[in-house]
Amino acid sequence: MPPKERKIAFMGFRSVGKSSLIIQYVENQFVDSYDPTIENTFSKHTRVGGQEYDLHVVDTAGQDEYSIIPQSYFININGYVLVYSVNSEKSFEVVKHVYDKIVDMKGKMTVPIVLVGNKKDLRFERVISVEDGRKLAESWKVPFLEASAKENSSVKEIFDTILNTMRQKENGDTGEKSSCSVS
């Protein structure tokens, strides 16, 4: 079977670690200081569930509640990873705003989304509980994970989860029946 090409966009407030998660996955390294992203696309060949993928990951410039999200973030994007940081209330609010924008553009049932709480290694700075993240994901009926780019914790799972979610949607499973969450 030839590899399937899939394009994923990572979205969320600035400095939540979108670039760090992507670079950790693609290059197996943690970059702590990374210039605020203009927009960057990373590619990786991967295999999930017996299917090969040529993955293109769009690292978007950070959004906030006032951002006009460019049209390009809605065209030819197969799935979204919405990232907030567990130590930032603001980033948690912004991710809700980004979700609403995506749903406005793409419709609720069609778009594969995974919610990620990043920086779970910052145990003492946490302001968003695992429960808060899980509740939000359940209200959207999307998978939820907490990750740490720094500790390389659950980073691969994010990509496996979004690819599996895309596959389910492509096969006509709306995901209404079950919601899986990994934290």
Rank of each mutant, 00 (worst) to 15 (best):
178 S>W: 12
69 I>N: 06
27 E>D: 13
163 L>Q: 00
104 D>I: 11
163 L>C: 02
44 K>I: 10
156 K>T: 14
139 S>V: 08
129 S>E: 07
119 K>N: 03
95 V>W: 00
170 E>Q: 12
98 V>I: 15
120 K>T: 07
14 R>T: 08
104 D>A: 13
129 S>F: 06
183 S>T: 15
155 V>G: 00
75 I>H: 07
154 S>C: 13
64 D>A: 02
101 K>E: 10
175 G>D: 03
121 D>W: 10
161 T>R: 01
80 Y>S: 03
25 Y>A: 07
122 L>A: 07
67 S>I: 12
182 V>R: 08
81 V>T: 02
86 V>D: 01
24 Q>G: 06
45 H>T: 09
65 E>A: 12
165 T>K: 12
113 I>G: 03
165 T>Q: 09
171 N>H: 08
159 F>P: 00
62 G>K: 02
52 E>G: 04
116 V>W: 09
100 D>G: 11
51 Q>Y: 09
49 G>K: 04
17 G>M: 07
41 T>G: 05
51 Q>P: 07
61 A>R: 14
104 D>Y: 14
107 G>C: 05
103 V>M: 04
17 G>I: 04
163 L>T: 00
92 F>I: 06
148 S>C: 07
72 S>E: 14
100 D>L: 11
141 K>D: 10
85 S>Q: 04
179 S>V: 13
10 F>H: 13
102 I>E: 03
33 S>C: 10
180 C>I: 11
78 N>K: 13
108 K>C: 11
164 N>D: 15
175 G>F: 09
128 I>L: 04
11 M>H: 02
119 K>T: 02
36 P>L: 12
181 S>F: 14
164 N>L: 12
86 V>I: 15
166 M>G: 07
120 K>N: 13
69 I>Q: 03
136 L>I: 05
35 D>E: 12
63 Q>G: 10
128 I>M: 05
115 L>A: 06
45 H>M: 07
180 C>H: 10
176 E>W: 11
165 T>N: 07
84 Y>W: 10
